[in-house]
Design a protein around this nucleic acid. Structure first.
Length: 334
DNA sequence: GCGACAG
DNA sequence: ATCTTGTCGC
């Protein structure tokens, strides 16, 4: 539900559009406010808390003390709930190189306290594709892959939503644009009690930054999440060319992996050359309820190609679904 | 201060 | 993100 206010040039400079409303990326008791300025650089997003119907508190984004990036109050509220350590009940399969038919490559294992530990099996992935003709039209995809012992990475579930996105892309605020429809897809799957729902022994992979989409979705859906980026969002002194240089320097090292530490000393994630042939790395960050080390292990397990398979499949399938169906949608609108 | 910036 | 053509290599 949205209230859209179009401002006249006299009211604010530069003039733009303010959206106010409830939003499924909002913590309870809060309202989403989004100002889309003609210049994306000066757009902002925030969530305000509601005291009663007439009073509101809190406003505007604030400068994060730990880095050079901007965060909103919304992101700060969600960050309080973020868990940065492993917090799940499953076990990670051994890497493919060591899976020499361990006769009982068992799907269960005994934990120290006697509890059964399930092997990680269902890994989710999400992505959005956009229409060329109508940039506001998008197809969101959720896929779940089966991470069997033979590592075939079969897609066992997929679902799509065609939608219109009224919130523009602003670096640092991607989650406000893409999280709502992805949360809907997850909710639908959970409501249906789908056996492949990536809840207990699974993960969802999404692009990231700071408190980015992966963290945002992870907290909102209460799922362990990993952030995957094909490009690096430049924060805290980190640049893609800088990372490239570091990787070149490590050219002959065994591990094609570097930790991304910003000028502030904060560790933002890792850059990994996931395929032997790829010069360009993928960028990994923790989302929710997972450590960076574990996140990297899971990414390695799901990399048939440069981009981890859950993300790749979500990307491919969302694009083809959009191309098959946007014509149908257009006809309906006539 | 300005510019850089996931998709 | 989106649009392309060809091209190289297994």
């Amino acid at each position: 539900m949205w209230l859209e206010i179009r401002l006249k040039p006299a009211e604010i400079v530069p003039c733009g559009t303010i959206f106010v409303g409830v939003h499924n990326t909002c913590p309870n008791g809060t309202i989403f406010v989004f100002y889309a300025s003609p210049s994306p650089r000066s757009s902002w997003i925030d969530i305000i808390s509601v005291i009663d119907s007439n009073q509101i508190v809190g406003l505007r984004k604030s400068r994060s003390s730990s880095s050079s990036s901007w965060t909103t109050r919304a992101q700060e509220l969600l960050r309080r709930r973020l868990i940065l350590e492993d917090d799940f009940t499953w076990k990670i399969p051994t890497t493919t190189t060591t899976t020499t038919t361990t006769t009982s490559s068992s799907l269960e294992d005994e934990a120290e306290d006697g509890k059964k530990l399930l092997m990680l099996r269902y890994v989710g992935g999400v992505d959005l594709s956009f229409s060329k003709d109508d940039p506001s039209m998008a197809c969101a995809a959720l896929v779940v892959l089966d991470l069997q012992a033979d590592a075939t990475l079969n897609v066992v579930y997929h679902d799509f939503t065609l939608t219109h996105l009224h919130i523009p892309y602003i670096p640092g605020f991607l989650a406000f644009r893409e999280a709502p429809v992805l949360l809907d897809l997850l909710d639908k799957m959970k409501r249906d009690s789908n056996p492949f729902y990536p809840q207990v022994h699974a993960k969802l992979m999404v692009p990231f930054v700071g408190f980015g989409l992966a963290c945002h979705l992870g907290v909102m859906a209460d799922l362990p999440t990993i952030g995957i980026g094909k490009n690096l969002h430049h924060v805290d002194g980190l640049t893609q060319s800088g990372v490239r240089k570091l990787l070149e320097a490590k050219e002959n090292c065994a591990e094609d992996l570097i930790t991304l530490t910003g000028c502030s000393g904060r560790v933002w994630g890792a850059a990994l050359r996931s395929t032997r042939g790829s010069l360009k790395p993928v960028f990994i960050s923790v989302g929710h309820r997972i450590s960076l080390d574990t996140a990297i292990k899971v990414v390695k397990l799901t990399c048939k190609y440069r981009v981890p398979e859950p993300i790749r499949q979500a990307d491919i399938r969302s694009r083809s679904f959009l191309q098959k169906n946007q014509g149908v949608i257009k006809k309906e609108c006539d």
